[in-house]
Nucleic acid binder design. Sequence first.
RNA 1: GCGGGUGUGGUGAAAUUGGUAGACACGCUAGACUUAGGAUCUAGUGCUGCGAGGCUUGGGGGUUCGAGUCCCUCCACCCGCACCA
Length: 926
Amino acid sequence: MEYNFREIEKNWKKVWKDTDIYKVTNDTSKPKFYILDMFPYPSGAGLHVGHPLGYIASDIYARFKRMKGFNVLHPMGYDAFGLPAEQYALETGQHPTVTTEKNIARYREQLDNIGFCYDWSREVRTSDAKYYKWTQWIFLQLFHSWYDRTANKARPISELIGIFEQEGNLNNPCPADDELQFDADNWNIYTEQGRRDILMQYRIAYLSYAEVWWCEALGTVLANDEVVNGVSERGGHPVEKKRMRQWFLRITEYAERLISSLDTLDWSDAMKEMQRNWIGKSNGAEVTFHLDNSKEDITVFTTRPDTIFGVDFLVVAPEHEILNAITTPEQKAEVEKYQQYVKSRSERERMSEVKQVSGAFTGTYAIHPLSKKPIPVWTAEYVLAGYGTGAIMAVPSGDDRDHAFAKHFSIPITNIFGELYNGEEAYSAKDGKIENSDFLSGLTIKEATLKAIDALVASGAGRGKVNYRLRDAGFSRQRYWGEPFPIVYIGDVPYAIDEDAVQGIDKNTPVELPMVENYKPGPEGQGPLANVTNWVNTKAGHRETNTMPGYAGSSWYFLRYMDPHNDNEFASKEATSYWREVDLYIGGTEHAVGHLLYSRMWTKALYDLGHISFDEPFKKLVNQGMIQGSSRFAYRVHGTNKYVSHGLRKEYKVDDLRVDVAMVDGLELDTEAFKNWRPEYADAEFILEDGKYICGAEVEKMSKSKYNVVNPDDIVTQYGADTFRMYEMFLGPIDVSKPWDTKGIEGVHRFLKKLWRLYFDESGLIVTDEPATEAELKILHKTIKKIGDDIERFSFNTSVSQFMICVNELSTLNCHKREVLEKLAVIICPFAPHMAEELWSKLGKSGSVITADFPAYEDKYVTENTKKYPVAVNGKTRAEMEFALDAEPADVEKEVLADPTIIKWMEGKDKKKFIYVKGKMINVVV
RNA sequence: GCGGGUGUGGUGAAAUUGGUAGACACGCUAGACUUAGGAUCUAGUGCUGCGAGGCUUGGGGGUUCGAGUCCCUCCACCCGCACCA
């Protein structure tokens, strides 16, 4: 009987579907286990072989956990809002609803093809009104909340109003403006609008201003990656930054908790480190510099208050509001010209092109708070408006960028490090002593830092401060294809639709996204929704026309899977307190700081407000690497239509051309297919080597434009889903990137056929009831142990190897015994579920193999009692000798030193040391 | 530029705690079986050397009886950098 994977897989997929075998219930006595994949954006290109890597890993883990007795939640859905669908709509006029629906259907088909055990009854789509109803609802919770720094949690804003009525903001300084102070009397005489303005500065979801890329020619706001080299990607039009009113989430209030609770998570150190660095906590000081001829002050943040006497100039960010007020008339033209230049520069460019020094002098001098010396004030792009206070004190002798700036503009440099500073390069190390610094001279950096802060506090010029690099999260997009905000403006004042002041419209979410015919941007950089006037203008006021960003829906989707059809709540308390956080989350590192940080914040906010009983979303995180493409190249002899094979290309002047990997078998090009590929290749001629045309190969990102995309459907058709699943795992460790090579899949396919032949020959089932031998049981139980261990540590590639070793050995032993093969069919189920089902049923078992228990291994077959030791002389292995594991060290030494090979290598020298590491190795040092 | 990751045969990789480097596969070579082979099986395959042996985990240096693994330093490539998702 042949291994007919097409029939087998088709049949079992149908059985699974008909019996709802993967449906998960919320009530059970079994312990729960929640395994989640990062859900995909359903792009028009469909899945390529790189996408399912993580899904296969989680599927193996989910099946394994289920067989180990857990109630496993393993759902899948779609992150269905996004820019590409909208862009496609702009180009083709097809509504994103239509294309998204189509893309999802294609994704589903591709996913089903691979045989996953998802409970599809729980599917979520972020673009579904039934889903985004709750995204909007959560936004309202954030809008109606503020962050209480004393209690260190989010609280309802109604409670803050109560506090203001009692005591003003005395004990609750404003997170957006620490100058803002008012008492209860003030509060009570403020107007409605005045109070709402203040509350807005406390809300966790709040309205403020930010700069966006604005393209005049396209009449639209562009995303960062739509701006390439300072011009729009589409059309190459000039772009500049424009200040716009935007929604934000006050994630900065969560900075400390987002750092500290990382310790409770089972994530890789690298991932935690990236989050820590992104949040960027730094201890330092805020220092205020008075200006010479102005009432204005400049406050800077510094992590090095110890260098305060080394300040030679101040630098203010070019966007800083204060610039207009402080620039002298003589310098005005220069500063404005500079600001104009910076408008065209991306933050990335400003940070990365450090060697390109630029700036402008404001003409103004500040007064050093301690030395009282005049300090020139400059503006320069290396200072970013969004970080710290948007201004720095520059210490050229201690900071590289300050140093380069001072050198470039010939600003005199004060040396506060004595001999440590050589005049050529800043001394930025953190050890050594401060000199030339008044009362700080002679102190270490640590001592000086504390003393400097004390002095600043005493003089009223500064204070110690903790600063975070993290910025509040921009939550507005000037786009159509996203969640509308449940916000209306009465006059210019924003109200949530569920507030009392809002009258005459439906006060419930969802605020549905209106259908539109065109997706062109609205006036003045507004999103397309601004054009839908009958939607925008309501009896209550005009609606917010921005939509929410991509991460809105993905910040809480893991909660919805727990109770996906609930129309009364985002998820019931029963469901969330049963499933709780995700036990295992699998996805790519590219989400290290975006999605994962936002999800964590939303979870904490929902926890604070009492909606869920846990405050971290993802207990364990496993990152999957990327599968890269392997591009194939043909070599056209320059100026001709002749193509020379890879090995001979050096003899000609050639142009490298990428060819579609589908036309290449390994490295050999199908020249006929190539001729038919494009009309211009129809009469191509080939210069062959050994009768073949051999292509060049290069590893690159898998992408359509590089003709190196491999569709999993094609692989499944040719080799079957089980082979595909095992091959993806066999490629290498789950967390590293590796190139796809279709050729290598045959080894895995051969393995499955060989496995099959343990159970069947040409005539049919050949499994016998004979008792298994010691050797057969040994390899079986070793394999059971290794597979279990490997799955637990996500080492799926070595699992596949172990299966191969096992099957190779059983084949050699000619083993066809039920006692062995029944268990083997069970343990292969997580990897090759279709084949496992077929073997299980052919062995006469009833029910799905997924309901079987994962077998336990027996110690007696796994533990060895002797070991073949490598015996080394001076660290070089010279012999192999077998000893009992419990052998006496003295006996071992005696026997080793008597061994002729060892004696030979000791070359008559005396033994200096004898190293015997039990179970590992032996080394004789002479 | 900053942050994070990766580097081992011709290729994908293994080596779980500092202890026999290259398991398991792909590819390649030779052979068997076969009407046929893109089926199956057997043997070989890091480099170098006739051989004993020597060399070998991106480069250089160090710690150790012993380093792919730890430390220092340099290089290359990949991911992220806040409006792609």
